[in-house]
Simulated scan of single mutants.
Amino acid sequence: MRPFWLAQALQADTSDTCPALQGEVRTDVCIVGGGYTGLWTAIMLKQQNPELAVLLIEADICGAGASGRNGGCALSWSAKYFTLERLFGVEEAVRLVKESERSIHAIGEFCEQYGVDADYRLDGTLYTATNAAQVGSTDAVIAALERNGINSFTQRPVADVQRMAGSSKHLEGWFSPAAASVQPGKLVRGLRRVALQLGVKIHEHTAMTGLEEGRAARIQTPDGCVIADRVVLAMNAWMARAFPQFERSVAIVSSDMLITEPRPDLLQDIGLTSGVTVLDSRIFVHYYHNTPDGRIMLGKGGNTFAYGGRMLPVFDQPSPYAGLLKRSLDDFFPAFADVKVDATWNGPSDRSVTGLPFFGQMSHSGNV
C-alpha cells in the first residue's frame, strides 16, 4: 500500500511504469535514485545540455521513497545558519541561506513553467514555541541572520501567531514569507513526467546491485548493466545500506505523519486557511500544514531509529505512532478531536551528523 501523498498522486498520474532495464546499455550519465535528488539532477543536466545521454534507474517507482511521502514543507536553511557558519565560514553561510531561499521560489517557477500541479503555495512558514522551554530558542539565530543582512523572519504578536497557525498552543512565533507547502507526491510525479519529456531514459523496478568504479563505471542491475562515463548516486537514506562507509555518516530515522479527512469548514473556524507551514522548536519537530481540499497533515520526526543503514519493514507501513500523532493533533486542534484520520504513514529519513545534506566525489576515478 502506497503512502497517502503518493497514492493520491498516482490517481491523477495514470502513465505506464517505465520498463525495467534489460541487458547492457551505454550512457553519458547514470543516476541511481528516482526521487527529488535524482530527477532534478537529470532535468537540470538535460536543460543545460540536451544532447547529453542521461539514464536514471529506480528500485521501485519514481517517488516511492522519501520524495513521495515527506511533510511537504519547503523550507530554507535559515534556521541552520550557525551550522553553516561553523562549517563554511560567514561568507559562504550567507550565500547558502540566500540560495536556499531562492530555491523555494524556483520550485514554484518550475511548476509554472512545466504545468506541474503540485499544490504549490508560497504562503510562508511559522517557527514557533509550544512550551515555556522553547520560548526564546529562535532569538540567537534570528539575531545572526539580522547581523548579516539575510533575515526574512519577523516576530509576530502571539494573537497573530495563534490565528495564522490555527492553534492556541503556540506561545511565540517568527514568520518568514520565504517558504512554501506542496503535495510532495504530485511534485515528484511531475518531475518524472518532465524528465521523460526532456529525453531522460528511466528504468523503474531496476535496483542497483553493484557498482564497479572506473572510467567508465559499471552499474549492475538484476537483469542488466549500465556503462556510464559519470554516475550520480541519489539514494539518500538508502546510501548507508549500499555503501558501508556511510553507516557512520547518517542515522536512519523515521518521520511519522497523519492526515485527516477534508474538513474545510473547521479550518475556516480555527483560522488555518492559508498554506503556511508551522514548526515548533523541538529537535525532532512537530510540523503541519493544511491542504487545498481542507485536510490537516501533521507529522513528527525522530520516532523509529534504524542504525547501521537498515531499512526496517515498518517504514513501508502505517505509522506505529498513530496514537501519539492523534494526541498531538487533538492537542493542537481540539476542534478536530472527532474528525476522522484518513491515513497514517512513515518513512526513512537520513539524518546526517550536521543535519545538512552532504555531497562529494566518491570514486578514485573522479566520476561518481
Results as ranks from 00 to 15, higher is better:
Ala143Gly: 11
Gln317Cys: 13
Tyr114His: 15
Ser78Asn: 10
Leu10Trp: 09
Ile202Met: 13
Ala207Lys: 09
Phe336Val: 04
Gly34Asn: 06
Lys340Ile: 11
Leu191Thr: 07
Leu279Met: 09
Gln361Leu: 15
Glu261Gly: 03
Tyr81Gln: 03
Gly360Lys: 14
Ala42His: 05
Lys169Arg: 15
Asp119Thr: 02
Gly38Arg: 01
Ser167Gln: 07
Thr83Leu: 04
Val161Lys: 08
Met44Asp: 05
Ala217Gly: 11
Lys46Gly: 04
Cys18Asn: 04
Pro320Glu: 07
Pro244Phe: 10
Pro348Leu: 07
Trp238Thr: 01
Val339Ala: 05
Gly366Thr: 12
Tyr307Ser: 10
Val25Lys: 11
Ala42Ile: 07
Gly199Asn: 04
Phe110Lys: 08
Ala143Lys: 14
Ser181Ala: 08
Pro320Thr: 14
His205Phe: 10
Leu10Asn: 04
Glu99Gly: 04
Gln317Leu: 14
Ala93Gln: 05
Pro292Ile: 00
Lys169Trp: 14
Thr130Arg: 12
Glu101Thr: 06
Trp40Leu: 09
Arg26Phe: 10
Gln361Pro: 00
Lys326Trp: 06
Ala234Pro: 01
Gly72Lys: 05
Thr14Ile: 13
Ala251Tyr: 07
Ala306Thr: 07
Gln162Val: 07
Leu211Gln: 03
Gln48Lys: 05
Val339Phe: 03
Arg218Thr: 04
Ala343Thr: 05
Asp350Ser: 14
Asn148Thr: 08
Gly299Cys: 06
Arg192Lys: 15
Gly124His: 06
Phe88Asn: 04
Glu92Phe: 09
Val253Trp: 02
Thr27His: 06
Arg215Pro: 08
Met1Ala: 10
Leu187Val: 05
Trp238Cys: 01
Gly71Arg: 02
Gly149Ser: 13
Pro357Lys: 14
Trp345Ala: 04
Asp16Leu: 12
Gly299Tyr: 00
Glu204Ala: 08
Ser328Glu: 14
